[in-house]
Design a protein around this nucleic acid. Structure first.
Length: 483
RNA sequence: GUGAUUGUAGCUCAGCUGGUUAGAGCAUCUGAUUGUGGUUCAGAGGGUCGUGGGUUCGAGCCCCAUCAUUCACCCCA
């Protein structure tokens, strides 16, 4: 038997003690802000019925679902079908798999709402911080298992929810010290554009192409639309609106006042056909509501920008759409979200409007790492390691450890007496434990402990009471220093 | 699904046009130091060179296949 080299599936990661501590630092900030705004926690199973997941994320999304093989001997049924020559990848998938790993947290949330509609008091504000899975090819900033940190409110049409979500975004990234831009758009505006250019049913193709504006530029977008079968005339119409508008955003900085979000919205109102499209007007009105309040929403590390080329892939969005990018690190979006008017309709609960956002934990982690923004005290470690010399000292060590822990000083005892003293200190060193306490026969006799500061190497003898006082002071200065 | 890239020690990587016994740094272990780590010094262990074929007197190096990795596209957090 050959030794096998252990590995994990590509796109997945182990998180060591330090990484978990750092991830918890981010999660705790997000969770505390969510709770501050009255959102309540929810958790759902990692797997859902495929019938719940399929068809919710577009054709591409279905391909990216991780599917779970059925138990039992599905091969027999499959063989029958194959012999009957009636097998179809889509209709007979259920023979092989009827469960899948969740692809996001929004669809399971919608499923939960429908199943529990009689118990839930609306509007229902929930947050959910759990991993999701996508069978994508991994690459930079893209994993096959990653965490989303969602907050959604469902059962309310009010744009106040959008306002609060923007405040949440602003609060979280302020606490994390990341400089960001919140990009906002509204699907109704995009729908309006499709409508007044005479292609209301091609909205998805238009949005996907337009969404790439930042990446491939106007020529790229034109090329893509052409490949999707749009004629030159329609493309010209789309660009009259999108490009003219967008260039005001991109290049309109000459007169700062002119390129403000409000002014860009006003520009849309002047477009030919605006008066004829209700949905267009509705979209612009909604954006107006938000941008009239933008000054109250954001702190100084946050920019907010109306971006008509923002579309976002998920088809269920119908109103406001959000995306956040880091101003300092190129890693794609670190938050996404939007409003969906009918997410629960497909599960039999119509007319339930909701709006939500999702922080991308893993990418935020990468941004904080790249910018070196994790505070040192985000990583909790043992404060004291007690090193006893023999069985008698060990008993004393247990007693002292109990006292220290009662003082909320994180303490551990090195467990193996026979191990050489040098290795024990090395253990403290490797674990970054700032203080080591030695208890030998001398210390025991005089009722003292020897304490060593691992950073300075300084060592002295104290009573346990003196030690506690000293440690309480030292820990304070130690953590002050690290901030 | 498409296009590239890279697979050599636990990790990061050298390894010349194909030539004898495949190297370094870091990490690990032992000792100098049996009540003192982080520094220093001396030493040790650790490899069927991703896998399977082929070419050759001879392959880590060349060819084919295969698997895995990373990056980009599609799409997306």
């Amino acid at each position: 038997m050959s030794k096998q080299k252990p590995s994990i599936p590509s796109g997945t990661r182990d998180f060591g003690p330090v990484e978990v501590a750092k991830r918890n630092y981010i999660i705790n900030i997000i969770r505390s802000v969510y709770e501050l705004y009255g959102y309540q926690p929810l958790e759902t199973p990692v797997m859902e019925n495929l019938s719940t997941l399929m068809g919710k994320y577009g054709a591409e999304g279905d391909k990216l679902l991780f599917k779970i093989l059925n138990s039992g001997d599905w091969a027999i049924e499959l063989k029958k079908k194959i012999n009957a020559a009636s097998i179809s990848q889509y209709n007979d998938l259920i023979l092989v798999s009827e469960k899948g790993l969740r692809y996001d947290l929004t669809v399971p949330f919608a499923r939960y709402v429908v199943m529990n509609q009689n118990e839930i008091t609306f509007p229902f504000k929930r947050y959910q911080i759990q991993p999701v899975w996508r069978a994508d090819r991994p690459q930079k900033g893209r994993y096959r298992e990653f965490y989303q940190c969602d907050a959604d409110v469902i059962g309310s049409n009010s744009l106040l929810n959008e306002i609060e979500l923007i405040q949440i975004i602003s609060d979280v990234f302020s606490k994390l010290n990341i400089h960001i831009t919140i990009k906002l758009n509204n699907r109704k505006i995009l729908n309006g554009i499709a409508e007044i250019t005479g292609m209301p049913d091609r909205i998805i193709d238009i949005t996907i192409a337009v969404d790439k504006y930042d990446k491939i530029g106007s020529d790229g977008v034109k090329e893509e639309l052409k490949q999707k079968g749009f004629n030159d005339d329609s493309i010209k119409k789309i660009f009259e609106i999108i490009l003219m508008h967008n260039e005001r955003i991109l290049f309109g900085g000459l007169a700062a006042k002119d390129s403000s979000n409000i002014n860009n919205l006003n520009f849309l109102k002047s477009i030919d056909g605006y008066a004829n499209s209700n949905i267009f007007q509705k979209g612009v009105e909604e954006m107006d509501y938000i941008f009239e309040r933008e000054n109250d929403l954001i702190s100084n590390n946050v920019k907010i920008k109306f971006d008509i080329t923002l579309a976002r892939g998920l088809n269920y969005y119908t109103g406001t759409i959000f995306e956040v990018v880091s101003n300092d690190v190129k890693i794609g979006s670190i938050l996404g979200g939007g409003r969906y008017d009918d997410l629960t309709g497909i599960f039999g609960l119509p007319n339930m409007s909701g709006v939500g956002i999702s922080f991308g934990l893993d990418r935020i982690y990468d941004v904080l790492t790249e910018l070196n923004l994790f505070p040192e005290n985000a990583i909790t470690v043992t404060t004291v390691l007690i090193i006893p010399f023999d069985t008698e000292c060990e008993n004393k060590a247990i007693e002292y450890a109990t006292q220290l822990r009662r003082e909320n000083i994180s303490t551990e005892i090195y467990p193996d007496l026979q191990v050489k003293i040098g290795k024990k200190f090395k253990y403290a060193d490797d674990k970054n434990i700032p203080f080591a306490i030695v208890i030998g026969s001398d210390e025991l006799k005089n009722n003292l402990v020897s304490i060593k500061n691992m950073k300075s190497g300084e060592q002295k003898q104290l009573t346990i009471e003196e030690l506690i006082t000293e440690l309480n002071n030292d820990i304070k200065s130690y953590s002050d220093f690290s901030e």
